[in-house]
Design a protein around this nucleic acid. Structure first.
Lengths: 234, 234
DNA sequence: GCTGATCTTTGCGCCAGAGCAAAGATCAGC
DNA sequence: GCTGATCTTTGCTCTGGCGCAAAGATCAGC
């Protein structure tokens, strides 16, 4: 891909490319291929051969996993600057999740072999990738513990706070979670039903903690949610 | 550590050291430190500064995570040949889990800096570590999906099958899960209570699927458990 | 501005599984 | 072989949250 100042600066901000030399960064950027998709479309589906690793430049993605009987779980939301499909690097045969655009997206990608070359040549890049994976492991461990030991209300509060810190945008009424996110999506993030999620949100809205809209949540008093998420005596 | 033929052969079998040159393997082995602990003792606790990476040579370990209010979750069982505490490599400040010996254990360890040297010098080692992390990520994603969408009975069947494949030993009556594993432990693995676990196990025992003992489970008909774990129409 | 499609809310019944309590196994140490 | 400690089983009750159904919002396209 042609290296422009613009996308090089996005590269530089990506956690996975931290502390790389400009030289390396440019080489990597030049090997990248661009791919834009529209909201609702997919970069790849669960079960597709894992051949590319992507870096999201613009937009937001939902990474979901489905069970054989069609039940879905929303694993994470990817925002600009994040790598996705990185399991391909680790020789996984197929993607374990699907990557669907929640907004119009632009991303760059490398083939497995291309990026692996860089990883083998640039130790810092190997360390960064390793670090990213380790963070995921820790996050999933936390979520697993939470889903085993905590009830829906607390998990929901946590999920909203996490989303706000990752994709939040300051607006008049509070912090808007800046992607179309249905009750169903929220339910799939925390392992609950959309009904239960809707009930808690309504309750919180009536207490003034949040403002609701269709596929929209605005957090008015984050601290209220923190209380629900952390309080040891509910 | 003095390099003996014995422990070098254990090293060679460890997934994380696959495809390394003998030369590299010997260098790594010589830098390792030995540490044995007895059943019940800990290699490290959750919250300890993450300074060492371990390779288990003998025994079995339980990796558990606790929430602030004391609730515990059993994340995984480590058996011989597996690396643990690897988050230390990725600059994590503290261990996110505790590592407790379920049997008498012997392990070798390296300091974070020692092993990082090797990872930076030996690309194949970096790839192996990355691969291990990616496998963990995928496993946790699966478990998270299961805990969100599947009920206790199925999760329990899966957990037993996983344990059997990892730590199973063929005995007269079937496949023994070869480490002391209480009902409580099983419950903590799948996010349930020991009561519920006990009920399902008793039920299965009366159907001849398993043989139970104190901190012991023998699987007589793995296929029966597979049915429970996989069947789409329960 | 109407129409159909999609998303959300709310009411109600129900049940898987949690949370006790109490009795029964099994083991380790003396 | 007794004793206390630990682990397990089983009965019972209770409830968080699921699973509808049906009505209300909101949006997109014509």
């Amino acid at each position: 891909m042609k290296t422009t100042a613009t996308n090089l600066s996005i590269f530089r901000k990506a956690p996975v490319f931290q502390n790389l030399s400009d030289n390396d960064l440019i080489r990597i950027a030049e090997a990248a291929h661009l791919r834009k998709i529209q909201s609702g479309e997919f970069y790849f589906f669960q079960g597709d051969p894992a051949e590319r690793i992507y870096l999201l430049l613009e937009g937001q993605l939902k990474m979901t996993q489905s069970s054989p009987d069609g039940q879905q779980v929303l694993m994470r939301v990817i925002s600009a600057g994040m790598l996705f499909g990185a399991v391909a690097l680790a020789q996984a045969e197929v993607y374990p999740v699907s990557a669907q655009a929640a907004l119009d997206c632009s991303a760059v990608y490398w083939s497995k072999t291309e990026l692996m070359e860089f990883v083998l040549q640039i130790p810092q890049l190997a360390m960064n990738t390793l670090r990213m994976m380790a963070e995921y492991v820790q996050e999933y461990q936390d979520r697993l513990r939470q889903s085993a030991t905590e009830r829906v209300e607390r998990r929901l509060a946590r999920a909203l706070l996490r989303l706000a810190s990752q994709s939040g945008r300051r607006v008049e009424e509070g912090v808007l979670i800046d992607l179309p996110l249905s009750r169903q999506d929220l339910a799939e993030m925390i392992g609950a039903t959309l009904f239960t999620v809707s009930r808690f949100l309504s309750q919180w809205e009536s207490h003034g903690l949040v403002v609701l809209g269709r596929e929209r949540v605005i957090i008015r008093y984050p601290h209220g949610l923190v209380n629900i998420a952390e309080d040891l005596t509910p």
